[in-house]
């Protein structure tokens, strides 16, 4: 059993085998192997407590279905189920997704990282520039002249009116 401590001082107890899904934690545990139990405490300073809850839920779900077993004998039905579960798991607000990306990056959990990135990219798909700006709450910082001249010439598709 190892203990993770989040930035707001909450404690999370996780089985080592489960937490091993984070390559960062796995390395840390490996480094400290053979030492006292107190060494099993890992401070995750850059992550607030809402995120470890989610990360651990994700770990538990995936722990029940380890990669090797998944590869060899997972039925199509089970794969579908996992897919559905993941879709639900990632169905959250963009702020949480961003935090998940950060957490997955720093803890090195590749599958979670990819999943969260894909979900964020889904939000950006098929949008106009204005919509993307609105969603991400970014103020357009291009000056008016830039917008008129420089930007379109660099990024223009051949617009349909040229042919129509």
């Amino acid at each position: 059993m190892i203990t993770l401590i989040s930035s707001d001082k909450r404690k999370f107890h996780v089985l080592e085998e489960v937490a091993n899904q984070s390559l960062t934690i796995r390395d840390v545990i490996e480094d400290r192997r053979g030492r006292r139990r107190a060494d099993r405490i890992i401070l995750v300073t850059n992550i607030n407590s809402k995120i470890p809850e989610k990360v651990i839920v994700y770990w538990l779900r995936h722990f029940l279905m380890p990669e090797e077993i998944a590869h060899a004998s997972m039925s199509h039905k089970k794969a579908e189920k996992l897919k559905k579960w993941e879709a639900k798991f990632f169905d959250t607000d963009i702020d949480t997704l961003n935090d998940l990306i950060l957490a997955a990056d720093s803890l090195d959990i590749p599958s979670l990282f990819d999943g969260a990135c894909e979900k964020v990219s889904d939000i950006l798909k098929n949008r106009s520039a204005e919509e993307v700006g609105e969603i991400s709450k970014i103020e357009n910082e291009f000056t008016h002249e830039e917008e008129e001249e420089e930007i379109p010439s660099e990024n223009a598709w051949v617009w349909r009116n040229e042919f129509a």
């Binding site: 950006l124 106009s128 520039a129 919509e131 700006g133 970014i138």
Partner: peptide, 8 residues
């Protein structure tokens, strides 16, 4: 391209 036009 849409993303390109949002900010620098």
């Amino acid at each position: 391209i849409s993303c390109t036009l949002v900010c620098r």
